[in-house]
Design a protein around this nucleic acid. Structure first.
Length: 227
DNA sequence: CCGTGATCATTC
DNA sequence: GAATGATCACGG
């Protein structure tokens, strides 16, 4: 069974990621003595965790970049046959109690997105998981324009949370970002503040990137096959 | 409990 | 069909 150590450089990471392109999930899983599940119903994180293993990511579930030494975050991105993202992309959870004091420059969202290795993976339900193939990687940092767009939404959404109105937020808000539930289930609760500054229990939330945003990232950096 | 990895399933 | 809100598994 193969063991992949952390990459020592960006070049080495990209080399490994390029070597995955075109391979199926079952082939990659087999390298590690695993088999790909028939469905992701009970294994929603399977693709992301497999790519972490195949590329030597280190941070696991810590609040750190996946490749700690390189400061690079890994994101698998489910796409359709034309290369268009089919799901939003989870970025990070939101510390509801700290929203008032949070600053964009040092925000968790900005740190997470500072440098991302995107790996498109076929993510349509018609194709069995084991047969789904991995696409070409893209090492990305936000352009000045993208950074501004992210900041605009972050400021608005964190502003709402900071003034104690987290429960007024819906997935409709934000042009490139969304705030949506990120929880065990609808009954999960986390400490938050209401508009009077009193402690309340709120549904845990996370930031997600809209598919229109990730689609733009992909299309700006390489032409999509068949598109 | 809170973080990570996300996709599912119902609604629009 | 796309998007929002709900949900699943696992690590520390």
């Amino acid at each position: 069974v193969k063991v992949v150590l952390p990459p020592r450089s960006e070049a080495e990471l990209l080399e490994r990621a390029n070597a995955l392109a075109g391979r199926s999930l079952s082939e990659i899983a087999a390298d590690f003595g695993q088999s790909a599940p028939a469905t992701l119903h009970r294994d929603k994180g399977f693709v992301g965790l497999l790519l972490e293993r195949a590329l030597g990511a280190t941070a696991k579930s810590k609040d750190m970049p996946d490749f700690e030494a390189l400061g690079i975050e890994l994101k698998s991105l489910p796409v359709d046959a034309r290369g268009n993202p089919v799901e939003t992309t989870f970025v990070c959870t939101i510390a509801l109690l700290d929203a008032r004091d949070a600053e964009w420059e040092r925000s968790r969202l900005r740190r997470k997105l500072a440098r991302v290795l995107w790996i498109p993976v076929l993510g349509v339900r018609e194709v069995p998981v084991p047969q789904r193939r991995v696409g070409s990687p893209l090492l990305w940092s936000p352009s000045a324009e993208e950074d501004r767009a992210l900041r605009w939404d972050w400021d608005e959404l964190m502003g709402v949370i900071g003034r104690g109105a987290v429960d007024e937020i819906t997935g409709h808000m934000g042009k490139v970002l969304q705030v949506r539930p990120k929880a065990k289930n609808g009954a999960a609760r986390r400490r938050a503040l209401d508009e009077e500054g009193c402690r309340i229990q709120a549904l845990p939330r996370g930031f997600y990137l809209r598919t229109t945003f990730t689609k733009r990232i992909l299309s700006e950096h390489y032409l999509l096959p068949g598109a």
